[in-house]
């Protein structure tokens, strides 16, 4: 993961990347949909596969496999206020740890979705994430969502933006409860 010398990131970049990841996590935790959507690029791919994130997402069936247009629909739906499975929004907090970052550009980025060679402006970031979610809409059960996250971050007009987020749930092979909040 640390990559060869050309893929290493400096201390300042690393701090910036972590700040982005934690900011994104807070917006997702607090269901600030519009603010969260402002973090994504026009080619964003949001992917929650039903197993390891291997191969072409288009060839399988995933829990979530949103291109940018479909992600926009997801956000719009949440913003209607009538998305019953998230009305009210689940109280959540997530721990994001084990953050590792490298510069993309070796063609082995964590998500095949954008296909671009990000060169010096793109990063592949992996982290471990555990979301604690209370299903207040119905069962009031505390649900745990442990998984490995891979982000593809890109610098756009000087700001980091998210071009892909892939969440490989530890429980991916087993049935999932409603997953309509932002993972």
């Amino acid at each position: 993961m640390s990559g060869g010398p050309t893929q290493q990131v400096g201390e300042a970049e690393r701090r910036e990347i972590e700040a982005f990841v934690f900011h994104e996590a807070r917006l997702a935790d607090t269901s600030q949909y519009g603010e969260w959507e402002a973090l994504v690029t026009e080619d964003m791919h949001y992917w929650v596969p039903a197993g390891p994130a291997l191969g072409d997402p288009a060839a399988g069936l995933s829990y979530i496999n949103d291109n940018r247009a479909r992600l926009a629909t997801r956000i719009r739906q949440l913003q209607t206020g009538k998305r019953h499975s998230q009305t009210p929004a689940s109280p959540m907090c997530r721990a994001v740890t084990n953050v590792e970052a490298r510069r993309a550009g070796d063609g082995s980025g964590g998500d095949g979705g954008d296909g671009g060679d990000g060169g010096g402006d793109e990063y592949v970031v992996t982290a471990t994430q555990v979301v604690y979610e209370l299903a207040v809409q119905s069962t009031a059960r505390l649900q745990l969502w442990p998984g490995r996250v891979t982000y593809r971050l890109r610098r756009v007009d000087g700001m980091l933006r998210m071009a892909a987020k892939t969440v490989e749930l530890v429980t991916a092979s087993e049935p999932q409860p409603n997953l309509t909040f932002l993972l």
Binding site: G51, G60, L61, E174, Q176
Partner: peptide, 11 residues
């Protein structure tokens, strides 16, 4: 059938 089944757990 599609390449895999997805399970939706409902209370």
């Amino acid at each position: 059938l599609g390449p895999n089944w997805l399970g939706h757990a409902v209370g």
